[in-house]
Amino acid sequence: MEIETLEEFDDHLASDGPLRGLRLQDLDLTGYADRLAARGDLTGLVVLGGKVPLPVAEVLLRGGAIQFPGVADAPVDPWRGLYLPSDLYAGLQDGYAATPDAEAYAWFIDARLRTDAYCTLVRAIHDDSVTDDLDEFVQGRSVVGIMGGHALQRNSRSYAGAAGLGHSLAEEGYLVATGGGPGAMEAANLGALCRSAAAVEEAVARIAPVPSFRPDVTAWAAGALAARTAVVGDEPDAPIDTLGPTARSLGIPTWFYGHEPPNVFCDVIAKYFSNAIREEGLLARSNAGIVVLDGAAGTVQEIFQAVTPLFYAVDDAPLPPLILVGREHWTERVPVWAAVTAMAAGRPMEEAIHLVDTIDDVLPLLPALTA
């Protein structure tokens, strides 16, 4: 049983329930030494990170608990889980290189640390914490994944179209999930975040003067943060654990592609060090379907990762649709459609794959939401 707030822990202590099997995650246990000592045997209690003063640590050790201490000398808190855009872009006024996002990428690619056992453990704990929070965040939601290239320019018609698609899906009640990066991913997240078509149009126009994150991530992100404030206001961010049922926009990026900065138009960001875990997590959580816009190598990889579970599906349950948008792109410029249809022939996935001309053809192919 995971306990992630002091309120939960207090309730459990008051109920006199057993401590064996509890996982206390990232809690401030200041002042809990006497209450824990009174319980005697603490075998099987696991304390993950958080603030553990010396008197509490001594009680845990004597009682037989297992304590994983907080991590020093790393630019991330491995126990924290999901991020808000403001978390990753704190300090942007001093340039992108000063932000936690950039610092985490620099730490990740440091050749001296890539195979360091301590750093590997930190990254693994971090990504597991993200997955844990992400599972809770999307629980009960119908998620549509939108895939597409990072190079799409903000001042293009295709960008505006992707933003319109994200908005339409969110208005229908879907949670829109993307790879969380620039380009088509940013556009879909932006559209989903906006509460009206007029707000989408205004936000796109606001950020269009800086069409790409190259060569200046600072200007690209600063303009986007200003546009985000215009959309959602400048009130303090709501706690992440309250957002799940009402969230419209989710980004799942990776520091593996750290040269592509995360976009800020997500309600929350699940950022990973492991791209393999991130890719699988994004696709597996797109339980209402996957929409693929124009893209290149990374997008092609996502298509075939999405095809694999469809290919091996054997039961009679309806499969989530895989929708490729842009007939010319996917049959001529990047001709993967022929391979997809060849694998689907005679299998249940044949009914789940679709090639359409425009984003206007997407919504009718998605499963209807229940009230």
Rank of each mutant, 00 (worst) to 15 (best):
Y105D: 07
L121A: 09
A197K: 12
A74M: 14
G164D: 12
L169C: 09
L82R: 07
G183I: 07
D94K: 05
A160N: 04
L193P: 10
D101T: 00
L113M: 09
V130C: 00
E103D: 13
L169E: 10
A160W: 04
T120Y: 02
A117C: 03
Y89H: 03
L134P: 04
L88R: 08
L193N: 09
I146R: 08
T99M: 00
Q153K: 15
L134W: 05
S156H: 04
E186H: 11
A162R: 08
Y118P: 05
T115M: 15
Y83Q: 11
L92I: 15
G91T: 06
A160L: 15
V130E: 00
S142E: 06
G81R: 02
Y83D: 08
Y118A: 11
C194F: 03
L190V: 07
A192E: 02
V144T: 09
L82H: 04
R123K: 12
V122I: 06
D94G: 10
A111F: 02
E103S: 12
G164I: 01
L84D: 12
A163D: 00
Q153I: 00
S196P: 12
V122H: 01
D110K: 07
T178Y: 08
G173S: 14
D128F: 04
G145N: 11
I125E: 04
I146K: 09
G191W: 10
R154A: 13
G149A: 13
V176M: 10
G191R: 05
C119A: 15
L190R: 02
L190K: 04
A124G: 01
A163Y: 04
G145F: 06
G148C: 13
L169P: 15
R195C: 09
I125L: 06
C194W: 06
E103L: 15
V143W: 12
A177S: 15
M147R: 09
R112L: 06
I146E: 07
S129N: 08
G179I: 08
G140A: 13
G181W: 08
Y118V: 12
R80G: 09
V130I: 13
L82C: 07
W107M: 09
A162P: 12
G180M: 06
F108R: 02
R112S: 11
Y159T: 03
T115R: 10
L134I: 00
N189S: 05
I109P: 08
S129F: 05
T131V: 05
R141T: 01
Y118R: 09
P182M: 14
A106S: 12
S156A: 14
G95L: 13
N189V: 01
A151Y: 11
R195E: 09
G173E: 03
R112I: 06
E171D: 09
Y96C: 06
A111K: 04
R80L: 14
D110R: 06
Y174H: 08
Q139P: 00
A151S: 14
T131W: 01
D133F: 06
A97C: 04
H167I: 01
P78R: 03
Y105L: 15
W79C: 12
L92E: 00
D77R: 05
V143G: 12
R80W: 10
Q93S: 07
A160G: 14
G183C: 14
P75Y: 02
P85N: 11
R123F: 02
A111H: 05
M147A: 11
V138H: 05
M185K: 03
A106N: 04
A106E: 14
F137R: 07
E103G: 07
P78S: 02
A124C: 01
Q139H: 10
E171M: 03
G180Q: 02
Y96E: 03
E136N: 10
Y89F: 14
